[in-house]
């Protein structure tokens, strides 16, 4: 099952590589060298991975999920989304979804336990009031939609509707300057994390703590645009949305929280260096 899903992924990412052109190589699960796109512009690469797949079923297809869904339905977006407590990272969300889809084997056991206990508690509390069984977290909602092969547009509407009604909480790093949940960056992050998980299956484990970059002294300026989320900006400049706390920290004076972006705001984007 996992092998099949990974095979799908490799094929789809391979197509994306042809689209973006520049080659780099990793060995697919079947042992064949596979040409993939360059990491020079990760945003373009990830968008290509997810856009290229969109015609054939979007992220669900890219992740090897069965595509059998109907068209997405337009849904109105509610008020400000329900946010998670401070310092809740986006990478926990992608890891949890991939684990749910059996595309990631080992997660952080503490996070896995917290999600399992929380989902159980929420389902049981909802049951007290006779509410029907449905996914009770952002992670559960997205994983189920991907399993059903829903389109990216459908997932965007689904997530924004649930978050707008306060039914599921979202990491602040995924909230755009206009108060929407940036599902495009979440779904692109899923594809990217699934690739990383696929590579990790084939290579000795690296220790992220030893290689995690930190902010250098130089920086660039980014002008916040409509639709920007901090996760998207981190993905654009660093190729990794999980690094958004670096940008948040560098702009503490003018940015009180990851969900507080304003259009036209100037953000200092530190150039990364290895510690």
């Amino acid at each position: 099952m996992i092998r099949l899903a990974l095979l799908y992924l490799v094929v789809v990412v391979g197509i994306a590589a042809v689209i973006t052109g520049v080659p780099w190589v990793f060995r697919g699960p079947e042992g064949e060298p596979v040409q993939l796109s360059d990491a020079a512009d990760p945003m373009a690469r990830l968008r290509a991975a997810s856009d290229g797949a969109a015609a054939r079923g979007g992220t669900a297809n890219a992740l090897g999920m069965v595509a059998n869904a109907g068209e997405s339905k337009p849904v109105g977006v509610g008020a400000i989304p329900l946010l998670r407590p401070d310092a809740t990272g986006v990478e926990q969300t992608t890891a949890a979804i991939l684990q749910d889809l059996a595309l990631l084997r080992d997660g952080d056991p503490e996070q896995v336990a917290l999600q399992r206990m929380s989902s159980g508690a929420i389902a049981a509390l909802n049951g007290l009031r006779g509410q029907t069984a449905r996914p009770v977290t952002l992670e559960g909602l997205v994983a189920q939609a991907l399993r059903e092969g829903q389109t990216d547009a459908y997932i965007d509407a689904l997530v924004n509707e649930a978050a707008g009604r306060g039914e599921v909480s979202v990491p602040a790093g995924l909230v755009t300057a206009s108060g929407k949940v940036d599902t495009a960056v979440l779904l692109a992050g899923l594809v990217s994390a699934a690739q990383a998980a696929a590579r990790a299956d084939l290579q000795p484990a690296r220790h992220p703590a030893l290689t995690a970059p930190v902010a250098g002294t130089e920086s660039r300026i980014h002008l916040v645009q409509e639709g920007d989320s901090l996760g998207a900006i981190a993905l654009k400049f660093y190729g990794n949305m999980a690094l958004y706390p670096i940008i948040l920290e560098a702009n503490r004076a003018t940015l009180s929280g990851p969900d507080r972006l304003r259009r036209g705001q100037e953000l200092r984007i530190p150039v990364l260096k290895q510690p």
Binding site: L83, P85, L114, Q115, S118, A121, I122, V136, V168
Partner: peptide, 15 residues
């Protein structure tokens, strides 16, 4: 699950 370290704490408050 009720501690602020739990990403799903606010979902539980809603429940």
């Amino acid at each position: 699950t009720l501690a602020p370290e739990n990403p799903f704490r606010n979902d539980i408050l809603v429940a």
